[in-house]
Design a protein around this nucleic acid. Structure first.
Length: 177
DNA sequence: TGAAGGATTTGT
DNA sequence: CAAATCCTTCAC
């Protein structure tokens, strides 16, 4: 579960329902060739974030999961929010509210836009402290194995055959392809 | 210094 | 299916 705390203190909690992994030896990984200014955070220790700008308009949030010095990360593609941010509520009809709630943070770009995640967060640690912008929480009840689907990643030209995408089966926030 | 292209999203 | 839009990477 992803927890986002804005500067004014308001918190949003989102259940992570879709992810993709990018690891060493993987041609689609931003750290495939070497360390650069952009992918620097991918080489940090597990528990840091790697946030980058894509297509000039969207940010993508990654969570570093391997040891320091290993360039890899997990892209968070979708979360199911616990409630709608005010700006979203204004734009949606009330009778569609429940469905929209699940779709608001669907897709890596929209997820970052709605939760105000950008490159200011690149390289920061995910720690649950009073002033932290972002951290992870682990509920008692995990996802049951039969609800976890593993398949190939989306939108890639390289490494398109590597099955490193996982998502919550039948969840409305998951990318439809 | 320039050009090509990208882990996306939206509208035509 | 192409545009929006800007940053990164790589070639010259």
């Amino acid at each position: 579960m992803l927890v986002r705390q804005l500067e004014d203190g308001t918190c949003y909690r989102g259940t992570i329902v879709e992810t993709e992994a990018y690891a060493p030896g993987d041609p689609a990984c931003h750290a495939y060739k070497r360390q650069t200014p952009r992918n620097r955070a991918m080489f940090k220790a597990a528990g840091h974030m790697y946030v980058y700008l894509i297509y000039g308009m969207y940010h993508c949030l990654n969570i570093v999961t391997d040891a320091a010095g290993v360039g890899s990360a997990v892209l968070v593609r979708a979360v199911a929010l616990d409630r709608l941010p005010p700006r979203e509520i204004d734009q949606k009809k009330i009778n569609q509210k429940q469905r929209q709630l699940h779709r608001v943070a669907a897709g890596p770009g929209l997820l970052c836009r709605v939760l105000h995640i950008d490159r200011r967060h690149d390289g920061l640690p995910l720690v649950a402290q009073s002033q932290s912008p972002l951290w992870l929480d682990f509920p008692e009840q995990g996802l049951s194995p039969e609800d976890l689907v593993q398949t190939t990643r989306i939108g890639l030209t390289q490494g398109a055959d590597i099955p490193w995408r996982w998502y919550w089966r039948n969840h409305p926030a998951v990318s439809k392809r």
